[in-house]
Design a protein around this nucleic acid. Structure first.
Lengths: 206, 206
DNA sequence: GGTTACATGTAACTAGTTACATGATTAG
DNA sequence: CTAATCATGTAACTAGTTACATGTAACC
């Protein structure tokens, strides 16, 4: 999960750990995607040892490091520089970038055929632009089959039901079914638009 | 999570580990609630040491143990007994039951005010019948506030958005919002019916 | 000059998983 | 007699968490 998140975010832009975490928190993934620093920093070190990421620069905080993250830090630092204020060799900010190994690992993670959990799936979709339409379609269809399997399972259970269900369990079951069918509809929408994109140079072949 | 599941299921009926797992898998909890034996059995032993559950009987498989779980095992075992077939001291099936300590621990877990994750929340609702309407209402309202907080957060992010969003991230965000508002509506339904149940002896107090 | 936000990291812990080991019972 | 299912358990691993430790920079 966390490695996919890191690689996917770095693919777009070089970032340091702290900023990475902030971006991750902004990604919409079925209910909250933030991770703790206690898992983020070790993951970055792991990925560096594995050759997937490398330190691009280890600037002090005054070096205009993170490209406009919406915070004002960069602007204020620039002001400081223009006025020749002291830059007291601050603690370094480690900015990471994706290596070629990291790029191919990202694609591996994104195209890995085994079913992802909800969070990982949401992350994969968030990084869809790094995949070609064929792979996007494959992932969406695997997901659709998985969700459909859950629906069938629930229906099968409902059919073989002998005893009366508790009112609250019934309510949960209905909510589950509603959420599942909403998800199915969402997937169908994405699949349809992917199909359109995957087969665009089709003239009418009559 | 797993301890709540065990206590909640045992509250209704004495069960052994294997059957417990099957029942757990039948509970509707936001996407799949099955647990592995590798976490179930140690959890049962933990709960036994803590005095929350105790072994009710350690029958061999032929003793008509689990009360009609939908399987045919019981019937066939009974047939065996009627015909005086050998009962070769089989490996024991440990049937667990809830102790008073376990009952009060279950209530503690169910009324614990700190926000539950999705799975745990679903489990709590599944065991709602063991709670009085006041506690049910409290849990539902805390949950509603939590979901509303997520909605607000998303909207706040959308408002302060300066750069254009990726098409797929946008789609994820919309799906998230749809799922959140569906959940909110579901909660409102439950809350309304709980309110009605909590204040029934109200004559028109004009 | 103190509080808040930025920034990186480690150690201990949590809550589960998979893979393995073992054996009984049922069904064909 | 053999395969599938029932049944209980352990050991090693996974993927995260919280709490702690440390220090810088910005804000008022």
């Amino acid at each position: 999960m966390i490695e996919l998140a890191i690689l996917g975010l770095l693919k777009e832009q070089d970032l340091h750990g702290y900023e990475l975490r902030k971006r991750l928190g902004e990604l919409p993934g079925v209910r909250a995607t933030v991770v703790s620093f206690g898992s983020l920093y070790p993951a970055l070190n792991r990925l560096e040892r594995a050759g997937c990421v490398k330190t691009v620069e280890a600037k002090t905080l005054t070096g205009r490091p993170a490209p406009s993250s919406g915070s004002l830090a960069g602007e204020l630092a620039a002001f400081r520089v223009r006025h020749n204020l002291p830059r007291p060799a601050g603690r370094s900010k480690k900015v990471y970038g994706l290596t070629p190994v990291g790029e191919s690992h990202l694609v591996e993670l994104l195209t890995d055929p085994q079913p992802s959990d909800d969070r990982t799936f949401a992350l994969k979709v968030a990084f869809f632009r790094h995949l070609d339409p064929r792979d996007r379609l494959a992932l969406l269809e695997r997901r659709r089959a998985e969700i459909q399997r859950r629906v069938d399972e629930t229906e099968h259970r409902a059919a073989g039901r002998d005893r009366v269900l508790d009112r609250y369990v019934r309510s949960l079951t209905e909510r589950d079914a509603a959420s599942l069918s909403q998800d199915l509809a969402w997937l169908d929408g994405l699949i349809a638009s992917e199909r359109q994109a995957a087969a665009p140079p089709q003239e009418n072949p009559s």
